[in-house]
């Protein structure tokens, strides 16, 4: 009965969705279909998704394929400068790009908490669509589940991405050599700082914006330079963790300089106030590139022509002094080891 009536009426629109997410929307029944057809299909808008099959069947490629997946659980899910939606697209796209891959397809899996305002869900899905378009990827498959109120923090999104790596490109920490330059594409710690106050429920007013951004333009601009050894985006664990991981993987020492690094004034401010170290705060739209010394200047010059990396700078060099460890040259001229954090940073008073 109902189906007949639906079929005859005008196509459902977002306004017809219930005000808040309901358990039935994840049950696979009519409400699930309604959600997919009114929200995801029109916004993500591509033939693969429109087919509404159990899978997307993609065209073959002669290039090597890169595959990456990431779960996003950020709190709060809408934060200054972005939201979990663009983060989930940019995060996975950037992970593909760090291997030199051209990102092509994404899948998106949603875990929604019962009671999530539909308006916010729509806003987030719209942001994903915009981010995907900007990144040049299509969201070709997805899944939606709804859990009971209290069982999730608003919503979680998992994205999986496929990209293609051009022949001959072999970026990896194993390529790093002593003497290489370490470049970072801009200020660090912005995203981590933007969610800090919220995360600890501490009442601060700040204008700090997350730097969530797609790094496609940056990577594409410099990808043809043969001197690029490898790239990595300093997300979780921040710049310090990334240079430590690269040091460990290469068996060399990435030595960065405190005086060369750009950290935004208010990011530093909140770190001073809460007693945290910005070098361990996540960036979501920055990359670290290790580049052969003779190409460092050229790489920097090109990067600075791209909006997302206009503040790129050489922040250090690779040495073979302390194999397997990253280090920081402090501005008083000392060099100390940059270790992985053994525990999560918490605000402190002492």
């Amino acid at each position: 009965m109902n189906r007949q009536r639906l079929a005859r009426s005008r196509p459902l629109a977002i306004e017809d969705l219930p005000d808040v997410v309901q358990i039935a929307q994840g049950s696979g029944g009519k409400l699930t279909h309604q959600l997919i057809e009114t929200l995801f299909v029109p916004l993500f808008d591509n033939p693969y998704l429109k087919a509404l099959g159990d899978q997307a069947i993609l065209d073959p490629s002669t290039e090597r394929m890169a595959l990456s997946t990431d779960a996003f659980v950020v709190k709060p899910y809408i934060f200054p400068g972005g939201n979990i939606g663009d983060l989930a697209v940019n995060g996975t796209v950037n992970d593909l790009l760090m291997g030199g891959a051209t990102p092509a397809y994404l899948t998106a899996s949603f875990i929604l908490e019962e009671g999530l305002p539909t308006k916010e869900l729509v806003f987030i899905v719209e942001s994903m669509a915009i981010a995907a378009k900007k990144a040049g990827v299509q969201i070709v498959a997805g899944d939606t589940k709804v859990v009971e109120r209290g069982a999730a923090d608003g919503l979680y999104i998992t994205t999986t991405g496929v990209g293609f790596v051009p022949k001959g490109l072999q970026w990896s920490p194993a390529q790093i050599r002593a003497g290489d330059a370490v470049i970072v594409s801009g200020t660090v710690g912005d995203h981590g700082a933007s969610v800090l106050a919220h995360r600890f429920g501490i009442d601060f007013e700040s204008q700090i914006q997350s730097d969530t951004a797609c790094l496609r333009d940056v990577v594409m601009a410099v990808r043809d330079l043969p001197g690029i050894r490898c790239m990595r985006d300093p997300t979780r664990g921040g710049l310090a963790t990334t240079v430590q991981e690269l040091s460990q993987a290469s068996g060399l020492n990435l030595r960065i300089r405190e005086t060369s690094m750009a950290i935004q004034e208010d990011v530093r401010g909140i770190c001073e106030v809460l007693g945290l170290d910005a070098l361990y705060l996540a960036s979501e739209g920055k990359l670290v590139a290790v580049v052969a010394p003779e190409e460092a200047d050229e790489c920097l010059r090109i990067m600075r022509t791209v909006q997302e990396s206009k503040d790129a700078a050489v922040i250090g060099e690779v040495t073979d002094d302390i194999p397997g460890f990253a280090s920081l040259e402090t501005y008083i001229g000392a060099v100390r080891v940059l270790d992985l954090l053994s525990l999560e940073q918490l605000p402190r008073i002492c």
Binding site: I208, E265, E272
Partner: peptide, 11 residues
């Protein structure tokens, strides 16, 4: 109380 600015962070 006072509203203060700590390098861009207000409280």
């Amino acid at each position: 109380t006072a509203l203060v600015d700590m390098a861009g962070v207000k409280r």
